[in-house]
C-alpha cells in the first residue's frame, strides 16, 4: 500500500493538468485575493503603489502554489487509490498459489 510510485505518477499527472488548464486562472484568482487584501490595508481605490503591487504579486504566488498543490495532492491521492486497487487485483489468492506449486 505504501508504494510511492502510483501516487508519484498521480501527482505528476495532477501537476501537468494544473499547468495545462489552471495556471492562468490561479494567477488571476491569487492576484484578486492580493488586491482584496490591498484594498483592506491601503484603502480603496487601490493605487499602484509598491505595497499594493507587492500584495498582488504575493497573492499571485500563493494562488499558483495553492491551486498547484491542490492538483498535485488530488493527483497523488488518486494515484494512491489506483495503486491500492491494482495491488489488490494482482494479488493471487493463497489457495491458487499453493495449487500452482
Amino acid at each position: 500500500m505504501h508504494s510511492k510510485v502510483p501516487s508519484l505518477i498521480g501527482a505528476g499527472i495532477g501537476l501537468a493538468l494544473f499547468l495545462a488548464v489552471a495556471l492562468l486562472p490561479s494567477l488571476l484568482y491569487g492576484g484578486y485575493a492580493g488586491l482584496l487584501l490591498a484594498s483592506g490595508i491601503v484603502g480603496t481605490p487601490v493605487e499602484p503603489t509598491l505595497v499594493a503591487r507587492g500584495l498582488i504579486v504575493f497573492g499571485m504566488v500563493l494562488g499558483v502554489t495553492a491551486v498547484g498543490s491542490l492538483f498535485a495532492v488530488l493527483g497523488a491521492a488518486a494515484g494512491a487509490a489506483v495503486g491500492a486497487i491494482t495491488a489488490v487485483a494482482s494479488r493471487r489468492p493463497a489457495t491458487e498459489e499453493q495449487a500452482s506449486r
Partner: peptide
Amino acid sequence: GAGTFGSAPLLAGKDA
C-alpha cells in the same frame, strides 16, 4: 474571484 479588477495594478484589463 469573479469580481472585476477595475484599474488595479498588474491586473487591469484581465478577467477571471
